Structure formats: structure tokens, C-alpha cells
Amino acid sequence: MADYAVVVMAAAARHCGGTRVSAVQLAQETGLPTPTVQKLVSCLANAGLLRSSRGVGGGLKLARPAAAITVADIVEAVEGPIALTACVEKGKHECTLEGACTVRPHWPLVNEALRGALAGVALTQLTQALPTPQPLPSEYAA
């Protein structure tokens, strides 16, 4: 669901000019099922990333500027703390290797690096058009 949440937030960010957008409109723009978008919108609003208004002129809009929202914020809104493994969380003892695992003390370092990488990608970066790839010069063509 985190990947769909990023897609929904990128679509919402393209409406940053102050216009509000509905969950149905976001579903149409992204090609995601409306119930999925509605569920994601609820999570994203609860996390303070989207703001919802009812009535005439109502709808959804970003709760803060797109430049101030990162992929890490979006992923955590839907999935919770970013981690490759949950064994480092208090009360999580589901791994059969726990007693002999020499990597367990190092997982927080890995998890923080992953979170840092995602925190370095602002939502605005996901709404910019990428340059069209140029063909290779003829001397490099196969």
C-alpha cells in the first residue's frame, strides 16, 4: 500500500494550485480502485499529510507544501515505522534466529539508513517531468 500512497500523494500534489480534489478524481487519475484510494486518503489524512473538507468547494488538498512532504512521511503514514525487519521493535520476538543472530544489533543502523534515503526524496521531486532520454550516437548503437 505504501507504493500506492506515494502515487496518490503525487497526484494530489499536482493539484497544489489551491484546487481541491476528490478521492474519486484521484482514483481516476491514478488508475487505482476508488476503495483503495479512499482507504489511503483516510490514512494520509490521519497522519496529517492531507486535509479534507466537506461541502461546496470541499475535497482534499495537501496539508503542507509538497516540498515539506517526503517519501518517508508517506510510507510511515501507511505502513508505520520504516524497517527491513521488525525484530528490533520492543515486544517483537517472531524470528527463529533471534538467539543466535549477530546482525540484530546492527539493524537499527540499516533501518535508519533506509529511512534517511526515503526522507531525502521530497514529494515535489515525484511530480516533475523527467527529461526524455536521448538516443545513443550511431557509433554506440548495436
Rank of each mutant, 00 (worst) to 15 (best):
A100T: 15
A66S: 01
A27P: 14
A141Q: 10
D73P: 00
L126T: 00
Q25H: 12
V121S: 07
G91C: 02
Y140N: 09
L126V: 00
E76T: 00
I69R: 00
V103H: 10
Q28R: 13
G120M: 10
A113E: 14
V56W: 06
A83C: 10
A45I: 07
V24W: 12
Q38G: 08
P35G: 01
C101R: 11
T30F: 07
P131G: 05
G17Q: 03
L114R: 03
L49I: 00
L40M: 12
G55W: 00
L50G: 01
A63I: 08
L50C: 05
G55F: 04
A12F: 09
A12G: 06
L130Y: 02
G55E: 00
S138Q: 04
L26K: 08
L44E: 06
A2L: 07
Q134H: 15
Y140D: 08
T127R: 00
V78A: 12
L136F: 14
N111H: 08
E139D: 06
C101E: 00
A113I: 13
G80Y: 05
V8S: 10
W107V: 14
S138E: 04
V8T: 09
L84D: 01
L118M: 07
T70R: 02
E29C: 02
H15A: 13
Q128G: 04
V8G: 08
Q128L: 13
V8I: 12
G80C: 04
E139V: 09
V21L: 13
E112A: 14
E139H: 11
L97I: 05
A10G: 03
P133E: 01
V103A: 12
G80W: 08
V103Y: 05
H93L: 14
A23L: 06
L109T: 14
T85C: 06
D3S: 08
E76S: 06
E112H: 05
G58F: 08
V121I: 15
G116K: 06
G91I: 05
T19D: 03
E98T: 12
V88I: 09
K39P: 04
L123Q: 02
L109Q: 09
R115N: 10
T19R: 15
L114M: 09
V71L: 10
S52A: 07
S42C: 14
H93K: 15
I82E: 08
L84N: 13
V37S: 10
K61V: 08
R14W: 11
T34V: 14
A142F: 14
N111P: 07
G57P: 03
R14K: 09
V71Y: 02
E98I: 11
P81L: 08
A142W: 15
H106F: 08
T124L: 11
A117R: 09
T70Y: 01
G91P: 03
S22P: 02
P33C: 02
